[in-house]
Amino acid sequence: MRRPRPTEESRARAARITQALADLLPDEPLPASPSEPGSAGRRAARGGDCPGCGEPLQATAARHGVEFDTCGTCGGIWLDAGELEALTSGLDPIPGTGAQNEADLRARVPAPAPREADIRYRECPRCREVMNRRNFGTISGVIVDECRHHGLFLDAGELEEVEAFLRAGGRAVGEAARARAAARSMPPAPPQLETPRSARHETAATSVVDVLWNLLFT
């Protein structure tokens, strides 16, 4: 698969995104030595090539246990498994103030920015396996590339779209939409079958009628 060549415009956009992330999450020094068992293995696993353009990923900031791996060329972001949940926890609105349905949600959240017209399946920077594409929150319209073992990749601007979706109450609306879809996909309940007990009762009643008929009329 041919990788896109970086342009001056894309480099400038990536620089703006990197600066915005730096302002959002002030740089903190990474620990010089592992503070818990197994942490050295996790640190060694970071890095890799950007799934979007193939340039090296760089760890840019760390805060509350979330460390960004960003691409300085296309502005993409890699988050290890569980880091997106940690980063977006607490963004849901107060109960009763979020969107009540999909129409309400669409009125509050602008449509995601258009991406590339062709569908590309990208490789995980950790294991090099092809990642799955999924619609974040079922109905957000933000298509993320996800490795079921290692994490997910967000194109430039998609993190902000995910945050806007959650702040508007999209998590609850998406879960309701997923539940309705699951209910529609379930097969219909089988028709009620006659129980053996009722069948035996009818057979016994028929036998009594036959005996009386024979006694009276034969």
Rank of each mutant, 00 (worst) to 15 (best):
S10Q: 14
V209M: 11
A14N: 04
N135H: 15
A164G: 04
S39H: 10
E36T: 07
F217N: 13
N214H: 02
C50P: 03
P95L: 05
L30F: 11
G137E: 04
E8C: 02
A156E: 11
E102D: 10
N132T: 11
E28V: 04
D27M: 03
C127G: 13
L91P: 07
G98D: 10
R178W: 06
S140G: 02
Y121A: 02
A99I: 07
E83A: 08
R184M: 12
I143N: 09
V209W: 05
L166H: 01
R43D: 00
A62N: 08
C71M: 11
E123H: 15
A14Q: 06
L154R: 06
A205H: 05
A168Y: 05
E8D: 07
A177Y: 05
E36H: 10
C71E: 07
G82T: 05
I119Y: 03
P114N: 08
R5P: 12
P29Y: 07
T18K: 14
I143D: 08
A12R: 07
V142L: 02
N132F: 13
C124E: 03
E85C: 00
L79S: 04
F136T: 10
L166D: 00
R178I: 03
A61E: 08
P112M: 11
H201C: 14
R108G: 04
P188I: 04
V109H: 09
M131E: 11
G52S: 10
R200P: 06
T206H: 15
G38Y: 00
A111E: 03
T218N: 13
